[in-house]
Computed example of a mutant assay.
Amino acid sequence: MSTDWLLDDSLAPSIEDEALGELYRGAARGELVLPFCSACELPLEPEQLVCDGCGATGPVWRPVPPRGRVHTATVVHRLEPGLVRTAEPYPVADVELASGHRLVLTAVTPGGPPSIGDPVSIGFRELGGVAVPAFEVSVAANAKESR
């Protein structure tokens, strides 16, 4: 089992979690799985049970394309011995996915923050044996920076 670059394994989520278990079970298969309204197909927040659009309950989870764009990003400067493994600042990004969902994610690997608007793909980090979605700046964004 690998060790996550960012967080201690004790912070791993449970794949049995009632609200987010589907997300983590999908991630274990290498898929980004997110909820939609069962009635009107509106993208829902991962823990949302009632649709804001039509009021229906009972989300339907399904795979979505693992790509999006950075809506906003920040760099976290936090030393938390025993919980945060890195001593370096690390990026967190609010990613607007092609599916219409928005997720706040850390990076798959250490590095600097992405720029607003950068295309990203969603990969996974392994935290305590659980696959956790994380962003990677897409090749197109890296090519833009090298010009």
Rank of each mutant, 00 (worst) to 15 (best):
R29H: 06
P89Y: 12
M1H: 04
P119K: 05
P91E: 09
I15W: 01
V104R: 12
H77M: 15
P66S: 09
V130H: 01
V137S: 10
V92I: 15
S146L: 15
D4N: 07
L11S: 10
G53K: 07
V60C: 03
I15C: 10
V64Q: 04
P35T: 09
P65F: 03
S146D: 15
T57R: 02
A87I: 12
L97D: 10
A93E: 11
P63I: 12
G129S: 03
G55E: 08
V132H: 01
V92G: 10
T106Y: 04
L79N: 15
S2Q: 07
H101F: 02
L32F: 00
P119M: 09
T74V: 15
P43N: 06
E22F: 04
L103Y: 01
C54Y: 02
E45A: 13
T74I: 11
D17G: 08
V76M: 13
V120L: 04
G82A: 11
G58Q: 03
V108Q: 08
Q48Y: 02
D94M: 15
G21C: 08
D17F: 06
P113D: 13
C40R: 01
P89G: 12
V60E: 09
E41Y: 06
V76E: 09
E136L: 12
P133H: 06
E126T: 03
D118Q: 07
C54H: 05
D4P: 04
A73L: 04
P63S: 14
T109G: 13
P133M: 09
A143C: 14
A134Y: 03
P66M: 04
Y90A: 11
T74H: 03
I15V: 14
P81T: 11
A143M: 15
V139A: 15
I15P: 10
V84P: 08
H101Y: 01
R147E: 14
V137P: 11
G58V: 06
G26L: 05
M1P: 05
Y24W: 05
V139W: 06
R29E: 13
L44H: 03
F124L: 00
Y24S: 01
C51G: 03
T72H: 04
P110F: 06
L79F: 14
W5P: 03
L20S: 08
Y90I: 12
V130C: 02
L32R: 01
T3V: 15
F36W: 02
V75Y: 07
G82M: 06
E126P: 00
I15A: 11
P133L: 08
N142Y: 14
G117T: 14
R25S: 02
L6Q: 08
P114C: 09
D17R: 05
V104Q: 10
L42K: 09
Y90R: 05
D17T: 12
A27T: 01
G111H: 10
R102M: 09
A39Q: 12
G68N: 10
A73W: 02
S2L: 10
L6I: 14
V120H: 02
T86I: 14
V64S: 06
E31N: 04
